[in-house]
Amino acid sequence: MSINWYKYSAPATFYGLAGRLVPWFGGAAASLTVIGLYLSFFVAPTDFQQGEAYRVIFIHVPAAWMSMFIYLVMAAWAAVGLAFNTRLSFMMARALAPTGAMFTFVALWTGAFWGKPMWGAWWVWDARLTSELILLFLYVGIMALWAAIDDPRRGDKAGALLALIGAINVPIIYFSVKWWNTLHQGSSIKPSGTSMDEVMLAGMVVMAIAAWFYTIAVVFVRVRRIILERERHTEWVKHVLEGA
């Protein structure tokens, strides 16, 4: 019975904890976004080569960082879930995927916006953009697999296995795309000069931290929803729903 209790109480405890943490992370994300945007659009100097258009990198670069980072975090939760059969880990993996896909999409979208003034084309087969595109395919594949499997236990594990083999593949894909790009001498995004302005870097880092806090807040909200759905037959969920 003790094992049973542990299993059933873990998501219940986390439900409450996550609920208390969401406003803090959400608030931090919002204020950091304001600071970051102020730095990016008012403090950071105009780039002498690219003019004002370069400012899209304050969104593009953090989004691209987050898209890859979230995939790795998701794969790590999946691995923990497979190793220890903890249900909460699978729920975390599921909750992370849509946000990761969103950031991948934002990175692609802003990349296109940047590409137009830079290269005169909305899309170029640049190594990083191409990797992002394939990363988006990986996210879509995992979410499609989750959507196709009705049984939550099978879905959790199948998605986790796919995330895992994807994570092993991501560095190889990234390398192969770079290799392909140099082979075909395609264009490549070069940050304007090696001496990036300190304010620019600060703006990007602040935006990246804001994106990270936003991710945590959104994932907690999503995990809470998944917990409620999965545990809707348990006493504590009935209690929560009646109380609300």
């Binding site: 394939i134 499609a144 192969s176």
Partner: peptide, 17 residues
């Protein structure tokens, strides 16, 4: 169809090399 969606991205390195 789902299989295609899952596996094609993983095929990318093989295709490139």
């Amino acid at each position: 169809v789902l299989l295609t969606l899952l596996i094609l991205p993983l095929y990318v390195p093989a295709l490139i090399f």
